[in-house]
Amino acid sequence: MKQIGRYRLDEVEGFGAFATVWRGFDVELETPVAVKVLAENWAHHADVRERFLAEARLLRQIHDPRVVRVHDIGTHEDRPFFVMDYVSGGTVADRVKPPGSTEDALRLAVECARAVQVLHDEGMLHRDVKPSNLLIAEDGRVLVADLGSAKRLAEASGVTVTTGTPAYMAPEQARGAPVGPRSDVYSLGAVTYELLSGRPPYDVSDPGTLLHRSNDSRPAPLASSGTVPRNLDHLLASSLATRPDDRPESAAAFADTLEQIAGGAKVRHVRRVRREVSPGLAITLAVLVFAASAAATWFLIG
């Protein structure tokens, strides 16, 4: 068993190039926590260390149930760490393979977009929106986490350092061009596409395909599967547009449209059910159609 101060580290929940996140336990308050610890090999890099601590400060500043909250920060054996809420429902990445129903996928996608909008309202871009950075609470809320790549909107209008995950990264972000809220909207479109299909919208195994994507590029449509409304394909295509101006103007607008489509999909389903008729009624209708046709024919001959 490992321990940092009063925090017991029980199991690794996730890890990346710079840090490890543990599922832990606060032995004094007797409550589960998540503890993020900077990797030992980066502990003496001043720029990485500062970026790690900046993430903790950003998370601490936001008071919203859709963003993971930081409760404590410290250093253990010269490695900084910070302590966060433990979110027990896993991540959105756990829900993409195999994909769930269209209704569940849309509900989760709306939650993701609402969480990202909270960051934008606080004047921040996430710049690494992806399924593993979106946590699911027991009540179904999605919480945004991992602000290691976050940047203040006021600082994002110039040339930026490329950061993020290629499968979910907007083309302008990959090029180091100025970014904005619509860059995160692109990432939300990619997450939504994967929730619906079980795969990212584009193959980016060759980074050049992201850097040189044409303006008329569109992801493979999903409506042909019969489970996705056609207008949802239109929304996904616009959110994944190469040009930022062609995307929904905000994460909130993206969420609003998703909700409208989800409501419309339910209405269409109800209408299909209403069109079903009993065999007896079908025979009666057929007789009436035949009689009307015969009468029309007699009238024309006469």
Rank of each mutant, 00 (worst) to 15 (best):
L258I: 03
L153D: 11
G264C: 02
P229V: 10
G158Q: 01
N133F: 01
P171L: 12
A292R: 07
A17Y: 11
S149G: 02
V159N: 09
E122R: 13
A34E: 11
E30M: 14
N133Q: 09
G226T: 05
H126N: 07
H76V: 11
S214W: 12
R51S: 14
G5L: 07
T102Q: 03
R141E: 01
L119I: 12
Q3S: 14
G140R: 05
S157T: 14
H126S: 07
R114E: 14
D104F: 09
A255F: 03
G264T: 04
G208Y: 06
A296C: 14
V96N: 07
G89K: 03
P80W: 08
R182L: 04
F15P: 09
L240K: 04
G5M: 02
K2P: 00
A190E: 02
G123N: 04
Q3N: 12
S101D: 04
F81K: 02
S187T: 07
L106K: 03
S205A: 14
T75G: 01
Q3L: 10
D245H: 14
V33T: 01
N215M: 11
A156K: 05
P221A: 05
G89N: 10
S239P: 08
G189A: 06
L288T: 03
L59Y: 09
D10T: 10
L288V: 15
H71Y: 13
D47M: 13
P229R: 06
V287L: 15
R274P: 11
